[in-house]
Write a protein that binds this DNA or RNA. Structure first.
Lengths: 238, 238
DNA sequence: CCCACTTTGTGCGCGTGTTCACAAGGGCGT
DNA sequence: ACGCCCTTGTGAACACGCGCACAAAGTGGG
């Protein structure tokens, strides 16, 4: 019934590959700027921090853009990857939350790569409205729907506190936004046609802490050291 | 030879599970605060945005902490997950880069969850040194090694521009830091014993753009529309 | 004390992703 | 024009993660 199709891979590029294409693109752009005309899979893989076989398989999903015995033409690959990622057109982005994070995002060098345009930076706090950040003026959250429509915003960025995130998300969705990038530490509920990606600082830190603990355990000897281990007990916890 | 062991899963918890534990933990903490004593896998899974079978399997890696017919004791699970993630001890974190991003991170509510202590916020820019952010004073980057040693920092956060990232990383590693959280858009080179996690805004945006383009293609009709498709050509790129 | 109901814990099949290893293909020197 | 050497593209084996579906286990009511 509500069975979700495993997304029949609309045109054949695996999700894992899509996630790596931007990394390749960045490495290629650096090569391009340094005037390098061609690059081997080995070299590019090393710069992207991946295995060269994986790189070749990833690129093979886009087509046969390499030349055996030579490598890949840098400029050509940049173009092909950009096109595949949809960066040959401009995407309008609206950021909600003009705190430090929202400002950091807005200042993030033309949003890291060309292809993205910040249509608006909005906040609920009247004191912030009107501030100038990265060449644009902070708008009030109530203008969200208007901006989304007028500027044809398709990607919404949520840089608000956790409590506000779901409400902002709902407004984005209601206004027609179909992709959301969420920096707030909450799980967002959205209709299935909307894509959500989450960036969560504290989760990343906790994952690092886990591995760090592993390493520390190893160093201090594998014997269970005297953990002051009176677990709350399944009955009385909290 | 340089064959990398596939990491024999030191104590049995799959990486994918580790990445979800913090999400469960957050949901559980919310339940705990609202006074809920027990929760079923179904309910918790829904709040965490995952499948309930997956949740049960994840939790089963920590041990048998549920009660059949009842569910999980919220307080007890909070404790067990915290312990597994290493959050029952405090980790010292140093942040390099006191721009908007660094400040956003420093202000991130006691770093999202207890278990982390910001030992220092450093920057290379003399004009920023001495600023007070989130109750601490911005230090100079040259004090990095001293701080790492004195405060026993094991996790380094890089919130600098791309050009500076590798150098900062090298200093972290040289000073004995074994986990790095990198916000700069570069691939860091580190010795194998160091863990690096990357958070990259522009990559996330590009992935969203990819899917957005897919959706748009679908809407405009599946026929290849007249892409002004004169690819630079493998010969003349750049 | 037993039975019906609820919910956990997990065996299993499937799809995805990763890596090795090699055949196919193209350039370049002679 | 030929053959060597380099690098791509991919078949196949393997590892991993996911989700279904069900047996095991504990609860509460009569």
């Amino acid at each position: 019934m509500t069975r979700r199709e495993p997304r029949p891979r609309e045109r054949g590029i695996p999700e894992a590959t899509v996630a790596r294409l931007p990394v390749y693109l960045r490495a290629l752009q650096a090569l391009s700027e340094s005037g390098t005309p061609t690059v081997s899979s080995e070299e590019l893989a090393s710069r992207a921090g991946v295995n060269s076989a994986k790189l070749r398989k990833d690129l093979s999903h886009l087509g046969s853009y390499g030349t055996r015995g030579v490598g890949y033409d840098v400029g050509y690959l940049v173009y092909q990857i950009s096109r595949e990622l949809g960066l040959t057109q401009d995407w309008s982005v609206a950021i909600v939350g003009a705190g430090n994070l929202g400002r950091a995002l807005a200042n993030y060098g033309g949003f890291g790569t060309r292809g993205f345009r910040i249509a608006a930076l909005l906040d609920a706090e009247p004191a912030l409205v009107g501030d100038r950040v990265a060449g644009l003026s902070v708008g009030h959250i109530d203008t969200l729907e208007g901006v989304v429509e007028a500027e044809n915003v398709s990607i919404g960025v949520i840089a608000t506190p956790a409590q506000a995130a779901q409400a902002v998300c709902d407004r984005f969705v209601g206004a027609g936004v179909t992709s959301v990038l969420n920096f707030a530490p909450v799980v967002l509920n959205v209709p299935p046609e909307v894509d959500v990606r989450k960036v969560d600082l504290s989760i990343e830190l906790q994952i690092l802490a886990f591995h760090e603990q592993r390493k520390a355990d190893g160093r201090e000897g594998p014997e269970r050291i005297g953990t002051l281990d009176a677990p709350p007990g399944p009955a009385g916890g909290q």
